[in-house]
């Protein structure tokens, strides 16, 4: 049995917000693939839950009239993989969430829960960084929009205040139209494993010139991150094989991997460099370039 003291089912977003404010010690539970594991392991702080599991209001993938792609925080990974909108416009997000857990986990784990943990290894995060996703957060009578890069405050810490709930991920057309992307996950096992390093590249080319270039990592620092120095050095450059080597050199100045029981700092750095080349190459191939 889980050591639950209180379980409160929310019937709507507003209801969830009200329950969170009435019960200051309560936490949200969506798919529960993090919360229930913590409860099972006896971690304190999860014994009162406000349940938003399969709340319909948070379960949507759509394109609005301005061509923004909107993904509800309660969408499970399997539904992202199967979504025609995502497959067509941001297939790299399919690559990323396909790498998460196994089918049972993907059938139940949500994209909202993945990012609200605030962990650097969240596999959907680096892609959302590369897409400049904006998060919509609702509180009592308030709605605010936060770029994903500002949402992550530190390890296990995200920009959510008491009584707030993440409702939507928004990707605007200027951040996906004309872009080609690729996500690469390196883990010790091919499946059911936490990333040693995750790398997402999104780029745009015109006449073999790289018009825009974004590269983001998971586990290359305390939170998921973009690599501004490398990005700046690549924009407006001609596509070439030597550029790939250059990227893998510059990238060292952007990242700050650490040693953990999974891998040493040096090993992670090697993977970071190698993945920068591979992910960039695959993204270029998708863009119709030759390298």
């Amino acid at each position: 049995m889980f050591d639950l003291k209180k379980h409160m089912k929310a019937n709507s977003i507003d209801h969830a917000i009200a329950l969170l404010l009435e019960n200051p010690d309560a936490r949200l539970i969506a798919g529960g693939t993090d919360v229930l594991i913590k409860l099972r392991n006896g971690k304190p702080g999860f014994s009162e839950l406000v349940d938003i599991h399969s709340l319909e209001e948070l379960n949507f993938i759509q394109q609005d009239e301005k061509n923004n792609i909107l993904i509800g925080s309660g969408v499970v990974f399997t539904d992202i993989i199967q979504s025609d909108i995502i497959k067509k416009h941001i297939p790299m997000l399919c690559d990323a969430v396909q790498s998460i857990g196994g089918p049972q986990i993907r059938n139940i784990a949500t994209i909202g829960g993945n990012n609200c943990n605030g962990v650097t290894s969240a596999d959907s995060a680096s892609t959302l960084f590369a897409l400049n996703a904006v998060l919509e957060i609702r509180g009592k009578g308030t709605t605010r929009q936060v770029p994903v890069s500002d949402f992550y405050l530190g390890p296990g810490k995200v920009d959510l205040k008491k009584g707030e709930i993440l409702t939507t991920f928004k990707i605007t057309p200027e951040n996906y139209q004309g872009y080609f992307g690729y996500f690469y996950k390196y883990a010790m096992r091919n499946a059911m494993d936490i990333a040693t390093i995750g790398c997402a590249v999104s780029l745009k080319t015109k006449k073999h010139i790289i018009e825009d270039y974004r590269i983001a990592y998971g586990v290359a620092g305390p939170v998921p991150m973009r690599c501004p120095k490398t990005e700046k050095s690549v924009i407006n450059r001609k596509v070439s094989k030597s550029l790939l080597d250059e990227i893998s050199q510059t990238i060292e100045t952007d990242v700050s991997p650490r040693t953990s029981w999974r891998a040493t700092k040096d090993f992670r750095m090697n993977i970071i460099k190698e993945l920068s080349k591979r992910a960039t190459k695959e993204a270029l191939l998708r863009a119709g370039e030759e390298v």
């Binding site: 379980h7 089912k9 599991h53 059938n107 139940i108």
Partner: peptide, 19 residues
């Protein structure tokens, strides 16, 4: 512990019974 819930495969050990 895999079972099907409305034809969806889940791990029933981390699925609250009330769901």
């Amino acid at each position: 512990c895999s079972v099907l819930v409305d034809e969806v495969l889940v791990d029933s050990c981390i699925y609250l019974a009330i769901w």
